[in-house]
C-alpha cells in the first residue's frame, strides 16, 4: 500500500539518498536499519514530503502521491520526525487536537482517544508541550501522528533519548495499534532490539542506497551480518 520508487534526494545540491525503492504492505511493520549517516532520516523526510524529490516518487495505494506533505498527511501518511518537534508553545491537548482538525477529524474525540492510548499524557494535558521531558515529547509526537488517523506511520528514531521503560511501553503500543487498527509502520532505528521486537522484516541501508532486504529471523540469527552492516 505504500511504496517508494527510485527515491533520490538530499539538501541543496548534495544528494544523500540515491534511487531507493522499498515497499510497506498493508498492516506490516518494516524496519529501516543502517549506520549513522547512511541516509535513513533523509529517506524518511523524502517519504513524508518534507524535502523535495530530485527523482523518484511516493505511491500510496498504488497511486502516485502528491508532493505536498499536507496532502500526503490527508491521504493517511503519519510522520514522527527525529527530534520529536512538538509545537512547544501549545498545550499537549492542542498538539493532538490541531492534528486531528487539520486532517478533518473531530478534535475533541481525538484528544479522548489519545488519552486512552497514552494515559501518561493525562496529567500533562494543559501543560505547554515545550516544557515536557524528552520521553514525554516523543510519546506526544506519536499521539499527534495517530490523531491524523494514518494508515501508514513513519517513525524516525523513536527511541532516541527515551528511557528504557517507555521504550518498552512504546513497543507494546506500536504492536497493538498495528494489530488492532491495521496501521502499517515504517520505522528507522539504531536500536536493533527494539526493531526485532516489532518489525517482521527490514531494509538495510548503506551509503544512501538499500543494500539488502532481510527478514527478522535471518537478521536475528546472523550476527556476522549485524556486525557487517550495522556495526552492532
Amino acid at each position: 500500500m505504500f511504496k517508494l520508487v527510485g527515491a533520490t534526494g538530499g539538501y541543496g545540491k548534495t544528494t544523500i539518498i540515491r534511487d531507493v525503492s522499498l515497499e510497506v504492505r498493508h498492516g506490516e511493520v518494516v524496519a529501516l536499519l543502517g549506520r549513522n549517516g547512511v541516509g535513513k532520516s533523509t529517506l524518511m523526510r523524502f517519504a513524508s514530503g518534507s524535502i523535495p524529490a530530485m527523482a523518484g516518487h511516493v505511491e500510496i495505494d498504488g497511486k502516485v502521491a502528491p508532493t505536498a506533505p499536507e496532502k500526503r498527511a490527508r491521504l493517511g501518511l503519519g510522520y514522527v520526525p527525529q527530534g520529536r518537534f512538538v509545537f512547544p508553545r501549545m498545550t499537549v491537548a492542542e498538539n493532538i487536537a490541531v492534528a486531528a482538525a487539520a486532517t478533518g477529524h473531530d478534535h475533541k474525540a481525538a484528544v479522548a482517544a489519545a488519552l486512552a492510548d497514552f494515559p501518561m499524557l493525562k496529567p500533562k494535558l494543559d501543560d505547554l508541550a515545550g516544557g515536557l521531558s524528552g520521553g514525554q515529547q516523543q510519546v506526544l509526537a506519536l499521539a499527534r501522528a495517530l490523531a491524523t488517523q494514518p494508515r501508514i506511520l513513519l517513525l524516525d528514531e523513536p527511541t532516541e533519548g527515551v528511557q528504557p521503560s517507555i521504550i518498552d511501553e512504546m513497543a507494546g503500543i506500536l504492536k497493538r495499534i498495528n494489530t488492532e487498527r491495521g496501521i502499517a509502520i515504517l520505522v528507522a532505528e539504531q536500536d536493533l532490539d527494539f526493531c526485532l521486537s516489532i518489525a517482521g522484516r527490514a531494509y538495510v541501508m548503506e551509503k544512501g542506497r538499500i543494500r539488502m532486504e532481510v527478514d527478522r529471523d535471518t537478521l536475528r540469527a546472523d550476527t556476522a551480518l549485524q556486525q557487517d552492516l550495522l556495526g552492532v
Binding site: Q163, P164, S165, I166, I167, D168, E169, A171, G172, K175, D193, F194, S197, I198
Partner: peptide, 12 residues
C-alpha cells in the same frame, strides 16, 4: 528502579 525507570522488558 525497574518500576520507575528500567522497565521489565515485556515487549522489547
Amino acid at each position: 528502579v525497574l518500576d520507575i525507570y528500567l522497565g521489565r522488558r515485556q515487549h522489547v
